[in-house]
């Protein structure tokens, strides 16, 4: 059995939609795990400090991205920067924002308390937190539920009607093993193709536009890559933690209705164990299992 902390119908205002410098939309996976981690830190020094959060599922129920479409390409809708001391507007940094409604399920380790004091504590704590730099506007009361990993519907009914993001990194990996570079491997799955055939009678036949892989495949930001060695330098947020310059890492993912999973772990995102290399990643095993089942 899994212990799940369920936070239903959280509405988030002005969350960061610039999930990477290549993508716009659903906040990066690091932001959701970051939220889980921040919540974990709130337990320190309380009677719930033994409870450990080990993974997170996010079901997106609703989302509005603040962009404006003029022609083919959309533009970001910005907020005006504050004026400087001369009363002028400083140069622009484009920030993309979105409003979201999500249900979040956090996998917990260690015994829960019998009563609902933990859920009520989380209710109170959430009001003082942010998610993906956005403000939490409202949510429904949190619940503790016990679910069987192989009976996903005991959980997914609470995540409806929404879409869960899972990793499809294996798709891109395959293309790269076949010789594509990372950009081509990604665009291959994002492009829409229409087959055109013109026969001798001048009849034009167009196929339905299609993509290479079935399912709602999107690029997703899943972590960071260090681009300098860990060390100390000036102007860091604190002086003791090892610092590195880094960049966003993006791969392919898929938004799926929660009913389509065989078990709960397929939806779950966790921090990937750090291997003392350059990669700081969030991982999800959906992609891996799909690979195996094909074999």
């Amino acid at each position: 059995m899994k212990d799940i902390l369920l936070i239903p119908n959280i509405k988030i205002h002005n969350a960061n939609a610039l999930s990477s410098p290549y993508t716009i939309g659903f906040p990066a996976m690091t932001a959701w795990l970051g939220f889980m981690h921040a919540l974990q830190r709130r337990l320190v020094g309380t009677k719930f400090s033994d409870i450990k959060f080990t993974g997170v599922i996010v079901s997106c129920l609703d989302m509005t991205l603040h962009t404006h479409k003029v022609n083919y390409v959309s533009s970001i809708i910005g907020t005006s920067n504050p004026l400087d001391k001369t009363g002028k507007r400083p140069s622009f940094i484009e920030e993309a924002r979105c409003d979201l409604e999500v249900s979040i399920a956090i996998e917990c380790e260690m015994g829960f308390l019998g009563d609902d004091s933990f859920a009520r504590f989380i209710d109170k704590t959430l009001h003082m937190m942010k998610i993906a730099s956005g403000d939490i506007i409202s949510f429904k009361p949190c619940q503790h539920i016990e679910v069987d990993n192989n009976e996903p519907r005991t959980l997914t009914r609470y995540l409806m009607p929404g879409f869960c993001l899972v990793s499809r990194q294996a798709l891109m990996q395959q293309s790269m093993q076949d010789g594509s570079d990372a950009i081509d491997a990604m665009l291959e799955y994002l492009k829409t193709t229409t087959d055109i055939e013109i026969d001798e009678h001048k009849q034009v036949k167009k196929s339905k536009p299609y993509k290479k892989e079935k399912g709602w495949i999107v690029p997703i930001a899943v972590g960071y890559q260090g681009i300098s060695e860990p060390g100390k330098l000036a102007n860091t947020r604190d002086e003791t933690t090892p610092h590195r310059f880094a960049e966003s890492v993006v791969t392919l993912g898929e938004f799926k209705m929660p009913y389509h999973f065989d078990n709960i772990d397929q939806m779950m995102w966790r921090y990937q164990e750090y291997n003392k290399d350059d990669l700081y990643l969030c991982c999800n095993n959906y992609s891996i299992n799909q690979q195996e089942s094909k074999l």
Binding site: I24, T67, S74, I76, T192, T193, I196, E197, V204
Partner: peptide, 20 residues
């Protein structure tokens, strides 16, 4: 009066521009 031919048209939709 198009000539007989065949091929694929590829597109990427819903792009957003961002300025630096």
């Amino acid at each position: 009066s198009p000539e007989p031919t065949s091929g694929k048209i590829n597109e990427l939709f819903d792009l957003t521009s961002v300025g630096y």
